[in-house]
Computed example of a mutant assay.
Amino acid sequence: MTKGAVDPQRLEEEWRADMEVLADLAEHGDRAEIERPVDVSFRGSPEALVRLTEAAEGLGFDYLDMETSPDGDPCLFLVRDQRADVESIKALTATCLQIEVDFGVEYDGWGCAAQDGTSE
């Protein structure tokens, strides 16, 4: 179903932002090898987001929520369990940017809670 290639400059921009998030997690004692829910968000037309919601499971994600952003745009949140190490996050970002291209949506980033191994 791939419609086109991810822009390498866009991938580089997202990766720089990812490195900041990973550094922040590490500063808070995160153990990146611990699997945890990682959510991703996308903005787009309601129709595009519904198509993505319907395809989410086949892409390795579960539906989390659909909200309206403060500026009135619909925003879709998906989630999957994974580690937050460099390789896993790089793969996640590449997947999400391909989703952006394939579904005509805008990838808006990822997030997760720091995991130090002391609680579930």
Rank of each mutant, 00 (worst) to 15 (best):
D7Q: 08
E100D: 09
D71L: 10
T53F: 03
V79P: 00
L52Y: 00
P37K: 01
Y63G: 02
Q115V: 06
C75Q: 14
V105A: 00
P46N: 09
D30Q: 05
L64Y: 07
E20M: 12
E13C: 09
S119R: 11
V101W: 03
T95P: 04
G104W: 01
F103G: 00
E47K: 15
T118Y: 13
P70D: 12
E54N: 15
S119E: 15
D39P: 01
A91V: 08
D102M: 09
L64A: 10
E67S: 12
G111F: 07
P74K: 06
M66H: 12
E67G: 02
R80P: 01
D24N: 11
Q98S: 05
L25C: 01
Q115I: 03
D102Y: 03
I34C: 05
M1G: 13
A32N: 01
D18K: 06
T95H: 10
T68H: 08
S41M: 12
V86E: 15
E57S: 13
F42G: 00
L97V: 04
T68P: 01
R83Y: 02
E20G: 13
I34W: 04
A17Q: 13
K90I: 12
F77T: 09
R43H: 11
L49P: 01
R80S: 07
D71I: 09
C112Q: 09
Q115Y: 05
S69I: 07
A56C: 06
E87N: 09
F103D: 00
D39R: 15
R31P: 02
G4D: 00
V86W: 14
P70R: 11
Q9V: 14
A17S: 15
A5R: 14
R43T: 14
H28S: 07
D71G: 09
P37D: 08
V38R: 00
G117T: 08
T95W: 02
E14H: 08
D30H: 05
C96A: 05
E12Q: 15
A26H: 05
D108Y: 06
L78M: 08
R43G: 07
E13Y: 09
F77I: 05
V38H: 04
G72K: 10
L52M: 06
V86A: 13
G60C: 05
D39E: 14
